[in-house]
């Protein structure tokens, strides 16, 4: 009830603010530059990409309208299906590990202690450092002749360590890279979430004699769920578009072991000049992510009105 009244007042207020004359055109003038640029550089290309995905290209020139042929071909193409599977596994393992580690780290830092500011500063570095350079850092770790792992192994009497030549190890290496780069983001979001939780339930739990694990499962986790969900959704969407790191670390190899969808799409478009087919692939990536985002928003809305 009070909510309705309040909203009524703000609306009347806003209308009063709008004034008359030139001021009526003002909001449209304010919106125009942003909307026009976005229409030209983002929306038109989206439409154009959709159109290109329905065409057959040769040597970068559209030849025929082929309807949904590109999409049909895509979903029967073992290369695409493999890439999709690699991407799904990559996203799953990366985000799962980042969530678990990020949460553990946030719980660890919840109580103020000496050095926490240093820790927060240091943890910013992996997130802001250029992704291309992150890949260089990890090539210098994984390299069999000059890598850090080989150096450690040799110092302890072992031999060379091969990472990027083996499909499973290369894939694991890529997940490790992503976890190194993005766990700090999970940590920051979850720490802020933890710090904003009300204190009373925890005090009550302590009075009732609940141990730390029970408190975590019964109180922390349920109350943290909205923040946890947002963090996971943001990270998942982002991980789905991972390109730079793979491009520099492995180029998708060895074989197809780390060929994520964006890498496959890039190669289709620029190496093999299959513009229409690649466009269909990118549209498909977009649709998968949009579907996931809509699903996530639904789940969040059901979880509670205040999320």
């Amino acid at each position: 009830m009070t909510d309705v009244v309040k909203r009524g007042t703000t609306m009347r207020r806003r209308e009063r603010l709008q004034g008359a004359g030139m001021d009526l055109a003002l909001p449209y003038l304010l919106l125009a530059p942003a909307v026009l640029i976005v229409l030209a550089v983002l929306v038109y290309p989206l439409w154009d990409g959709l159109r290109a995905s329905l065409m057959f290209y040769r040597y970068g020139k559209p030849l025929d309208f082929v309807g949904l042929d590109n999409y049909i071909q895509l979903w029967t193409d073992p290369q695409f299906l493999n890439s999709l599977w690699v991407t799904v596994r990559f996203v799953f393992f990366s985000v799962a590990l980042e969530t678990i580690l990020g949460l553990a780290l946030a719980l660890f830092c919840l109580r103020e202690f000496y050095g926490i500011r240093i820790l927060r500063t240091i943890l910013i570095i992996p997130m802001v450092i250029t992704p291309v350079v992150v890949a260089i850092v990890f090539r210098l770790i994984y390299a069999s002749d000059a890598g850090m792992l080989t150096a450690f192994s040799e110092a302890m009497g072992g031999g060379q360590v091969q990472i990027l030549g083996d499909p499973l190890k290369a894939f694991t290496g890529l997940v490790v890279l992503d976890v190194w780069e993005w766990t700090p983001l999970m940590f920051l979001i979850l720490l802020a979430g933890l710090q904003s939780l009300p204190q009373e339930p925890f005090e009550a739990a302590r009075v009732d004699g609940a141990g730390p694990w029970r408190t975590f499962v019964d109180h922390t986790l349920p109350m943290l769920r909205p923040v946890l969900a947002i963090a996971i959704v943001l990270r998942t969407i982002d991980a789905f578009g991972t390109f730079d790191q793979v491009f520099v670390l492995t180029r998708g190899g060895p074989g197809e072991a780390t060929r994520l969808l964006p890498i496959l799409g890039y190669e289709m478009a620029f190496k093999f000049q299959q513009t229409g087919y690649a466009a269909a692939l990118f549209v498909t990536i977009g649709l998968i992510i949009l579907a996931f985002a809509l699903f996530a928003v639904r789940m969040l809305k059901r979880a509670g009105p205040d999320t």
Binding site: F243, G265, A269
Partner: peptide, 11 residues
Amino acid sequence: IVPPVVILIPV
């Protein structure tokens, strides 16, 4: 929300 990679070709 849509990752930029989706409009790479048309851009």
